[in-house]
Structures are given as C-alpha cells and as structure tokens.
C-alpha cells in the first residue's frame, strides 16, 4: 500500500515501538519530557489496539523511578517533578489498569500544595502559573478520585477568569486564546461539571474557523494548520457537541496526508518530519472522527473510553 487514503496502522505501531530504544539526537533532546512521550506513544498504541506490544513491567518500573518523595513525577529519571509529568504518569498507569500501585494521597497532596489562593496552579515549586496546570491538576485528581483534595470552586473560577472576547481561553487572565489552552480549560471545566461557563456558540464558531482550506486545523487565526490541532480543536468541539461545524472528511484527509507511509509516524504537516507527539494527536483526532478500527477516545481525559469507564466503574 503506498497511498495515503488509509491509516497505516501497522507502520505507526512499529514507529512508536521503535522509539523505545532509540538513541538518536531527537530522543536525546526530548529526554527530559520522556514521560509525556511515553503517554503519547502508549495512548496511540492503545487506540490502535497494540498497547501490549511493549513491556508493561519495564515501563511501570521506570515510571515509579521518576516519582519524587514529594509525590510528583519528573519527566525522566533524575529530572525535577512537575504537574505535567505527574499527569502523564497517572494517565499511563490508568492505561495499564495499574493505578493501584500509586499512593494517591501522596500525589493528591503534591497537587494540592501547588494550588494558589486565586485557584490557579503552579506547575512546580518555581511558581509558573498556567491553565495547562489547572487541567493537569483536575484531570489527574479526577483519575485518582481525589478531586476533593483541592478547592475545585476556586480552580473553576480561575479558569473562567482566563476567558476571552472570542469565547476562548488563555494561559493566564488576559492571555490570548489558543486551541491548546482552550482544550485544557474546556476539558477541565467538563470534568468539573462546569461547562455552563463556556459560551458554546461563540467558542464553537471560533474553533470551527480554525479549519483552513487544506482541511487541516490551526491553533489561532491566520496561522498554519498542524496535525496537533486535530486533537486540541476537535476534542474541544467534541466536548461542546459541535464537531459537525467543521468538514470532517477534509480533516481526515489532511491527517492521513501527514503520514509517513514508508517509515510510519505522523507529522505536523504533509512531508514534514514525524514524531510521537504528532503521531498521537493524528491518531487521537482520527479516533474522534470515528475512523474505523480505532478505539474511541474520551475528549476530556484524553484516554481511550474503555480506560475511563474502567477507572470510574
């Protein structure tokens, strides 16, 4: 098969598996975010029905080595803890149905310690504030069934204070709307049962205008399309029940055009270099578009639906 009208599942599975032991410059440069990388790769594998192709015990043991005494996880062994890696670690353990190996109180106390008086969250002890971390905190604690550990009302208030004139959300109050940031805020509000704070029609319209002529989606007005927004924009639209406001077929075509059909993997735009980040977002986007053969993904938890169901059953 040399056409890009279908998803080359086996190629992508092989590509992701090959990353496990890869020692090239790319993997060296991204060593510090390996926890995120593992989450992207493993979730993509699970969506494609191949989660068990990698050594589960080895991965879980590595994850646990990334945990610090404070409860938070680093991006790799020896790296400092951060809320973003803590979320990825918890998500991976949820994929493997191994949340029980975690001391959820310890993680909950780490995250609680990062919440500020205004409801916002530090990413780590060094004080960077961003609604990405609000999502990290809320999603992670929900998966651990420990949302009671934080002041959820304040967390919601802070997210709402980042709402903009276009209905979107920024990183902090006054920050420009950006599809990635919008996903974080909308998904966090969805998990917190507070979607009524979102102006669905206004934001849905802005989001559907992210689709450009090629069918791809961009993250802000007048920007280039990128496969990662197939996730950020589409998941937000899915949560808002407005996926039908974009042309699904042409988006599907755009994602498929970004495949490396020779070596596997998906890139940001056609003919660019592939990576695990875009491979995951491409596959996740196709899952939201109900591409045949892929598992369904939950747009808020960014995990396969069966995994989320299992966590909360």
């Amino acid at each position: 098969m040399d056409d890009s009208s279908t998803l080359h599942v086996q190629k992508h599975v092989e590509f992701i598996k090959s990353l496990d032991n890869k020692k090239d410059l790319e993997s060296l440069l991204t060593e510090h975010i390996r926890m995120n990388g593992a989450y992207w790769g493993l979730t993509a594998l699970d969506l494609m029905g191949s989660l068990n192709d990698l050594d589960q015990d080895k991965i879980i043991s590595w994850i646990l080595q990334c945990q610090h005494d404070c409860g938070g996880f680093g991006g790799n062994i020896g790296h400092d803890p951060h809320i973003l890696y803590t979320l990825s670690a918890v998500q991976i353990l949820a994929l493997y149905d191994k949340l029980a190996v975690l001391d959820s109180s310890k993680i909950a106390s780490y995250i609680t310690g990062l919440q500020q008086n205004d409801g916002s969250f530090y990413g780590d002890e060094w004080g960077e504030i961003d609604t990405r971390f609000s999502y990290g905190a809320i999603c992670c604690l929900a998966l651990l069934r420990r949302l009671d550990a934080i002041n959820l009302e304040k967390a919601i208030t802070y997210i709402v204070s980042c709402k903009n004139f276009d209905g979107g959300f920024g990183s902090t109050p006054g920050g420009e709307s950006h599809a990635g940031q919008i996903f974080c805020c909308v998904a966090a509000l969805a998990i917190a049962g507070s979607l009524h704070y979102v102006d669905k029609d206004l934001l849905g319209w802005w989001l559907c205008e992210r689709q450009v002529k090629s069918g791809g989606l961009n993250g802000r007005p007048e920007k280039l399309p990128d496969v990662c927004y197939s996730w950020w924009v589409l998941s937000s639209l899915a949560i808002l029940d407005r996926v039908h406001w974009i042309d699904r077929e042409s988006l599907k075509t755009f994602i498929l055009d970004c495949q490396d059909i020779e070596n596997g993997g998906i890139s940001d735009r056609p003919d660019d270099a592939v990576d695990v980040f875009h491979t995951y977002f491409g596959v996740a986007g196709l899952s939201l578009l109900e591409y045949p053969g892929l598992k369904h993904i939950d747009p808020a938890y960014a995990l396969p639906v069966n995994v989320v169901k299992r966590v909360f059953s």
């Binding site: 959820l152 009302e153 998990i191 049962g193 899915a238 699904r248 938890y301 169901k309």
Partner: peptide
C-alpha cells in the same frame, strides 16, 4: 454519532 460525550461529570 458525531457528538462525543464527556465521561464523567462532577456535579458541583
């Protein structure tokens, strides 16, 4: 169907 529902709601 085209709408995908959010899995869990936390009812404040």
């Amino acid at each position: 169907g085209s709408g995908v529902s959010v899995a869990v709601c936390w009812d404040l």
